[in-house]
Amino acid sequence: QVATSTVRILGMTCQSCVKSIEDRISNLKGIISMKVSLEQGSATVKYVPSVVCLQQVCHQIGDMGFEASIAE
């Protein structure tokens, strides 16, 4: 089973930030795809909930120095 959710990301300033986040999160087990939008300050994450949760994704992004939260 696959889920798609949006994560809000604060602190991104350039495409390099976007690429860094996409590269790191895409390597997590259970992540199918991730598309980060600098303009919208968010990311669309396609993932397998039984393998990885959005809290883990937000935590990983937080470790990179950005502020991440699950969009309502």
Rank of each mutant, 00 (worst) to 15 (best):
Q1H: 12
Q1S: 10
Q1Y: 11
Q1R: 08
A3P: 01
T4S: 08
T4Q: 08
S5L: 07
T6V: 14
T6S: 09
V7H: 00
V7F: 10
V7W: 05
V7L: 15
R8E: 09
R8N: 14
I9D: 03
I9K: 00
L10C: 06
L10K: 13
G11N: 05
M12N: 00
M12F: 04
M12L: 06
T13P: 00
T13L: 10
C14Q: 02
C14I: 05
Q15I: 09
Q15T: 08
Q15P: 09
S16L: 10
S16G: 08
S16H: 12
S16C: 05
C17V: 04
C17A: 05
C17D: 15
C17I: 05
C17K: 02
V18Y: 03
V18A: 15
V18I: 05
K19W: 09
S20L: 15
S20N: 14
S20C: 06
E22H: 08
E22C: 05
E22Y: 08
E22N: 05
D23L: 10
D23H: 14
I25W: 02
I25K: 00
I25N: 01
I25Y: 03
I25E: 00
I25H: 02
S26L: 10
S26Q: 09
N27H: 11
N27A: 13
N27G: 14
N27L: 11
N27T: 11
L28S: 02
L28M: 14
L28D: 00
L28Q: 06
K29A: 12
K29N: 14
K29W: 12
G30C: 07
G30L: 06
G30Y: 05
I31C: 04
I31T: 00
I31K: 00
I32M: 07
S33G: 06
M34I: 15
M34C: 11
M34A: 07
K35L: 07
K35N: 08
V36R: 00
L38D: 00
L38C: 05
L38W: 06
E39P: 08
E39Y: 08
Q40I: 08
Q40A: 13
Q40T: 13
G41P: 00
S42A: 10
S42G: 06
A43N: 03
T44Y: 13
T44R: 13
V45S: 00
V45F: 06
V45I: 11
K46N: 08
K46D: 06
Y47K: 00
Y47N: 01
V48R: 14
V48Q: 13
P49S: 08
P49R: 09
S50G: 10
S50V: 05
V51I: 13
V51H: 05
V52T: 06
V52W: 03
V52D: 01
V52G: 02
C53H: 10
C53P: 10
C53Y: 07
L54E: 01
L54K: 02
Q55F: 08
Q55N: 09
Q56Y: 15
Q56I: 09
Q56G: 04
Q56E: 15
Q56K: 09
C58D: 04
H59G: 13
H59C: 06
H59S: 15
Q60R: 08
Q60S: 11
Q60E: 15
I61W: 03
I61H: 04
I61G: 04
I61P: 01
G62H: 14
G62K: 15
D63G: 08
D63F: 10
D63S: 14
M64Y: 03
G65T: 03
G65Q: 03
G65L: 04
F66H: 01
E67P: 10
E67R: 13
E67N: 11
A68K: 01
S69A: 08
S69I: 11
S69W: 14
S69P: 02
S69E: 09
S69R: 11
I70V: 12
I70F: 08
I70K: 03
I70S: 08
A71H: 07
E72F: 10
E72N: 10
E72W: 09
